[in-house]
């Protein structure tokens, strides 16, 4: 009986400690709301339009808490990024919102796209997937389309 009793007491103490731990971490989160950062990875250049609309909305919604917003383009259609006419409007919009548009260097290489033909204000990251995961490790909210 004693063993049962002590086991029960011990598990109760452990459980309440756990519950308290999650409660206190939630409280800290609420007290120090970090800026929201976002990363969206897409294989379709045309999706830049709804993505940038989402960014504009979030910028308004988050106000001062709106942090970084990065869009990574990767995949077989990455060559579309060399289409100046198509990209110009998106890049202007992105610049206004403070959104960074990035190209995946790995995809450029794989699909034989000359990095020099990618618009100058697009940063090239070596590996889009890795970059996305690194940002997620830093707490970025993410979408992979």
């Amino acid at each position: 009986m004693k063993t049962i009793l002590s086991t029960l007491i011990l598990s109760f103490v452990l459980m309440s400690a756990n519950a308290q731990k999650s409660a206190s971490s939630m409280a800290t989160k609420n007290e120090n709301p970090a800026a929201y950062n976002y990363v969206v990875m897409t294989k379709k250049v045309d999706q830049l339009y709804p993505i940038l609309l989402a960014a504009a909305h979030l910028a308004k919604e988050d106000k001062k808490q709106f942090g970084q917003f990065e869009v990574i383009i990767c995949g077989k259609d990455i060559g579309e990024m060399t289409d100046e006419q198509k990209m110009e409007k998106h890049l202007k919009e992105a610049e206004m919102l403070g959104v960074n548009i990035l190209a995946c260097g790995f995809s450029l290489k794989k699909f034989d796209v000359n990095p020099e033909k990618i618009p100058g204000n697009v940063k090239i990251v070596e590996n889009g997937i890795l970059h996305n995961m690194e940002l997620q490790k830093k707490g970025y909210l993410s979408l992979e389309l």
Binding site: Y36, P50, I51, A54, H57, L58, L141
Partner: peptide
């Protein structure tokens, strides 16, 4: 906008 909606839910703590 589906992308906006999904990001807004993530802000609320949803797993995506």
């Amino acid at each position: 906008n589906a992308f906006l909606y999904a990001l807004q839910l993530q802000k609320k703590g949803y797993k995506t």
